[in-house]
C-alpha cells in the first residue's frame, strides 16, 4: 500500500501532466506559430489556381504521357503516387523482381524513344523512390528525356533543354543534398510554353 501510494501517485500524475503539456499544449503551440509564420508550408505547399488545388510542389504526380517528362517509378498502392499511403518497394538488391522491373522500365523508355536505345538510362529514372512520392528526378534523367518530349510536342530541342536547365535546383549551400528537377513544376512550365507557341 505504501509502495502504491509513493510510486503510483507520482507516476500517474506526472504522466497526466506530461500528456497535457507535450501531447496537447506543445502540438497546439507549434501549430499556432507555424500557421502564423509559415501558413503556405504548414498546409502542404499547395499549388493553387482559381481556388482549385492542383497539387503540392513537394509531392510528385505520375505522368505516363510521352509528351510529358516522366518522374520516378513509384511503389505505392493501389496506384502510383498515392499521397495517402507512402511506401517504397523494399525490394532487395538481388531480388529478381527488381531486376525484371528495371529491365521492363528501360524497355518502355526505349520503345517511346528508339534513338536513345544505345544510351544507358540514368539510374533514378528506373528505380522506385523511398516514399513513392519523390517529386524530383536528377538533371541527367530530365536531359535524357528532352529529345522525346521535344519531338512529341513539336518543339525545338534547345528550347526544351533550356527549360530543363532553368528548373534545375542546385545543392543547398552548394553542399547538401543533390541537384534535382521538380517534374511537376517542369511539366507545368512545359504546358505553358506549348500553349504559348500554339497561340503564336
Amino acid at each position: 500500500m505504501q509502495f502504491i501510494l509513493s510510486t503510483l501517485r507520482p507516476a500517474a500524475s506526472l504522466l497526466m501532466l506530461f500528456t497535457g503539456l507535450t501531447g496537447v499544449v506543445y502540438p497546439l503551440a507549434v501549430t499556432g506559430v507555424a500557421q502564423a509564420l509559415f501558413p503556405a508550408q504548414a498546409n502542404g505547399s499547395l499549388i493553387e489556381k482559381d481556388g482549385k488545388v492542383l497539387g503540392s510542389r513537394l509531392i510528385g504526380q505520375p505522368f505516363d504521357d510521352v509528351r510529358s517528362f516522366f518522374g520516378r517509378p513509384s511503389a505505392t498502392s493501389p496506384a502510383p503516387y498515392n499521397a495517402s499511403a507512402s511506401a517504397g518497394s523494399n525490394l532487395g538488391p538481388t531480388n529478381p523482381v527488381l531486376a525484371a522491373a528495371v529491365r521492363e522500365r528501360i524497355a518502355a523508355l526505349r520503345s517511346v524513344d528508339p534513338s536513345e536505345a544505345a544510351v544507358p538510362v540514368p539510374v533514378d529514372l528506373v528505380t522506385a523512390s523511398g516514399s513513392g512520392l519523390d517529386p524530383h528526378i536528377s538533371p541527367a534523367a530530365a536531359l535524357y528525356q528532352v529529345h522525346r518530349v521535344a519531338k512529341a510536342r513539336d518543339l525545338a530541342e534547345e528550347d526544351v533543354r533550356a527549360l530543363v536547365l532553368e528548373h534545375v535546383e542546385e545543392r543547398a549551400l552548394g553542399l547538401f543534398g543533390e541537384p534535382r528537377v521538380n517534374v511537376l513544376l517542369l511539366n507545368r512550365a512545359l504546358d505553358e510554353v506549348a500553349r504559348r507557341s500554339a497561340s503564336e
Partner: peptide, 27 residues
C-alpha cells in the same frame, strides 16, 4: 545487376548515380 541491364549509375555533376532504389533524388 542493374548496371548490366543498361542503367547508368556513375556519379556526375548532374546525377548522384549509385544504388537509388528506395532513395530520394533530393538526398
Amino acid at each position: 545487376i542493374l548496371r548490366g541491364a543498361g542503367v547508368d549509375d556513375v556519379a556526375s555533376a548532374i546525377s548522384s548515380g549509385g544504388n537509388m532504389e528506395g532513395k530520394e533524388v533530393r538526398f
